[in-house]
Amino acid sequence: MTDRVIRLQEAPFDYGAECAAFAERAGGAGAVVTFLGLVRNDGGSLTRMEIDHYPGMTEAAIDAIAAEAATRFRLDSLLVLHRTGPMQPGEPIMMVATASRHRAEAFAAAEFLMDYLKSRAPFWKKEHRAEGPIWVAARDADEEALDRWAGGAG
């Protein structure tokens, strides 16, 4: 059984503290992989970012993705933490953490989680820029990234 923790929150989080807590909980796993997504400020004109989501479906979709990761990879623990609402450039948006006996499974599971969270969990990013607000467009590459996990969740 994989210990799974999923959190959705508006408030910023402390990546270092989350990593430490995860490593502590995963003690004995042998390998921990973490990923942090930050609010990028391409071109320097971003004043803030906002993440819209679909309450209810968001939790269900992340849960299904996490359950699929737990089936595909031998994981002791996994964590998915995603923010919603307004955030500032440079702030954390989301993180995933995976713990396994060996690093290969932990790395692969983290990539799997990221690929699916990007295009199968109902989040939408809106950038507020000096020149006006814009909804971030999905990239073909994000959709193509799912192909390597053919037959997967979501």
């Binding site: 990007k118 295009s119 989040f123 939408w124 909804w135 467009a137």
Partner: peptide, 10 residues
Amino acid sequence: VAFFPPMTGG
């Protein structure tokens, strides 16, 4: 039923 653009999480 919900209609929305392609998702952009992560």
